[in-house]
């Protein structure tokens, strides 16, 4: 199973023949009189890492919430061609429950899905594996207030992975962290997306940082200020690991920056 997913991912560039994992057509979202998203069309292919780049308050988080079915669209359609598609969501804040240990926080999705109260040995084992994957092995029994901001966000990532999602929706996942921690966690995110240990194939990430979007994604979807409309869909074909200082990556960053400035 994992091998097949990886093979699909290695094809990298979206092929016309492969099936979309998410398809958004003419999406409209309004809250009262405020139009958050207007006529947005976007297709996400299996295996892609896509960034939604836009200024603060442009409606990109609303788009992610609409995909996660937290927000009801007022027009258009969001289709998920795979019936059994599992979607994980990661918020800007870690949102760990302070009365639970790290391990119990990671187990929360399983408890909710199964409807029980305590996890069995197999579930605990897979939660420990997730903690291992996000490099939090020694902190299973720590409480959130004993962890640093970066570690809390790692735990939140482990919890999101615990649902065994095909698609991970990231809402500025490391936006509240300091620059250095953020860079490290961005690299970790890429490593986990590329690793064969989960069935995660596709990532859709909201960000307002141009370098972050370009160094991480296969495609950067540049959105306008509210209401969010697509300005351009920029493919990034450079190999990982990337740095903003790389010639090719740097050129794309500069291109997008110019694009965002002229759109203002």
């Amino acid at each position: 199973m994992n091998a097949i997913v990886l093979a699909e991912r290695l094809e990298a560039a979206p092929l016309a023949s492969s099936r979309p994992i998410l398809s958004i057509q003419d999406l409209n979202v309004r809250f009262g009189g405020v139009v958050a998203i207007e006529k947005l069309t976007l297709t996400v292919w299996r295996g892609e890492f896509v960034s939604l780049l836009g200024p603060s308050g442009c409606g990109k988080s609303t788009l992610l919430k609409a995909i996660a079915r937290l927000v009801e669209p007022t027009g258009g359609r969001i289709t998920r061609p795979y019936a059994d598609l599992r979607v994980g969501f990661m918020f800007q804040k870690p949102l760990l429950l302070p009365w639970r240990t790290t391990l119990d926080n990671v187990l929360l999705p399983v408890e909710i899905q199964r409807g029980g109260n305590t996890a069995d040995a197999a579930e605990r084992h897979s939660a420990l594996r997730m903690l291992d994957l996000v490099r939090l092995s020694g902190f299973a029994d720590s409480y959130p207030h004993q962890l640093s901001g970066g570690m809390q966000q790692r735990a939140a990532l482990a919890r999101a992975l615990m649902c065994d999602p095909d698609v991970l929706l990231l809402d500025e996942p490391f936006g509240a962290l300091d620059e250095m921690t953020r860079e490290v966690l961005n690299e970790e995110m890429i490593r986990i997306w590329q690793s064969k240990q989960t069935r995660l194939s596709t990532v859709l990430m909201v960000t307002h940082s141009i370098p972050e979007a370009v160094t991480m994604s296969d495609r950067v979807v540049v959105l306008s200020a509210r209401p969010a409309r697509m300005i351009e869909d920029v493919p990034v074909a450079c190999a990982h690991p990337r740095a903003p200082e790389d010639a090719e990556t740097g050129a794309i960053i500069r291109r997008i920056r110019a694009m965002v400035r002229s759109a203002r």
Binding site: L70, F89, F91, K93, L97, Q113
Partner: peptide, 24 residues
Amino acid sequence: LEYRELFETLGASRAQEFRKLRIP
């Protein structure tokens, strides 16, 4: 609201949200 959204994305029922989030 963010915590309630988290529970919603995890597919929690109202009773689960009450027991595992609101009461503690």
